[in-house]
Amino acid sequence: MKSLKKTRRVQVIVLAFVALAISTALIGYAMRDGINFFRSPSQVAEDPPEPTEMFRLGGLVEAGSIVRGEGETVRFRVTDGGASIPVSYTGILPDLFAENEGMVGQGRYVDGEFQAVEILAKHDETYMPAEVMDALKEQGVYREPDATGGAPVTN
């Protein structure tokens, strides 16, 4: 009798472990397209990702680099002070998108150009995405906002 109880307990534990492993695998499979890693321009230049990999690229829009093409296509460069990556985006840019301002784009790096499918810009004059701020600090380019509450000053 004790042997039957022990066998049942082991079976329940094994079944629970198998159910947990299957559910974890299904959740991971469902989220595979929803997980996008952040990279700075220096990281992309150093180790270019595969053209099929979707990721987020963030930094400052390089001064004088915005070129509006035919239709809704816009080309510009994103920098973190260490490297500069060309970006192309077809669509309507956010109202606060501007040169020397922080941005984060989501897309793929194909043939030496980041092809963005989404562009996010700061939401007020002092905001900068945390990933962009960290990348700029790592490059030694970022400085805290001035005492008047103005935008962060970059070199």
Rank of each mutant, 00 (worst) to 15 (best):
P41A: 01
L120F: 10
T90D: 05
R77Q: 09
L136F: 06
A151V: 09
G91D: 01
V44I: 06
S88Q: 05
R9S: 13
A16S: 11
V110L: 01
K5I: 13
Y109W: 07
P86K: 03
R32D: 03
D33E: 10
E70I: 10
T126E: 09
L15K: 11
I119S: 02
G91M: 02
V18C: 13
I27H: 08
E72R: 15
M31E: 09
I35Y: 08
G34S: 10
F38T: 03
R68I: 14
Q115H: 13
K6E: 12
P86Y: 02
V74H: 00
A121I: 05
E118H: 12
S65H: 09
L57I: 06
E62W: 06
G58A: 04
G59N: 01
I119T: 05
L60C: 01
D111C: 05
V78M: 04
Q139Y: 04
T148W: 09
P145M: 06
L60Q: 01
K2Q: 10
L15W: 06
T73A: 02
G82D: 08
P145V: 02
P145W: 08
A135N: 08
A135Y: 02
L26V: 13
S84F: 02
Y29W: 15
E131S: 11
V61E: 00
Q106V: 12
L20E: 11
D146G: 13
G81I: 01
A63K: 14
E72Q: 07
G112L: 05
F76N: 00
T126H: 07
R68F: 13
S3M: 13
R108D: 05
E138D: 12
V67E: 09
A16D: 11
F76S: 00
A147V: 14
R32V: 15
Q139R: 12
M54T: 09
N155L: 06
D111A: 09
G91L: 04
D111H: 05
E138R: 14
D111F: 01
N36G: 03
I27W: 08
D111L: 03
P145D: 03
G112M: 01
L120D: 07
G112P: 04
P152W: 04
L96C: 08
V44D: 00
Q115R: 14
G149D: 05
T154M: 07
R143A: 15
D33Q: 14
E62Q: 14
S42M: 09
E138S: 08
E50I: 08
D95Q: 08
L57C: 07
E62P: 03
D47H: 10
S84Y: 07
E113I: 14
Y109R: 04
E138Q: 15
G105S: 13
G112I: 10
A25C: 05
M133Q: 10
A16H: 12
P48K: 01
T154W: 14
V61T: 02
A98R: 15
L26Y: 07
K137V: 00
N155A: 11
M54I: 06
M133H: 04
G107V: 04
D80T: 08
A83R: 06
P86G: 03
I119P: 03
T7H: 11
N155F: 10
G58R: 11
Y142C: 06
G82I: 04
K137L: 06
P86E: 02
G102V: 05
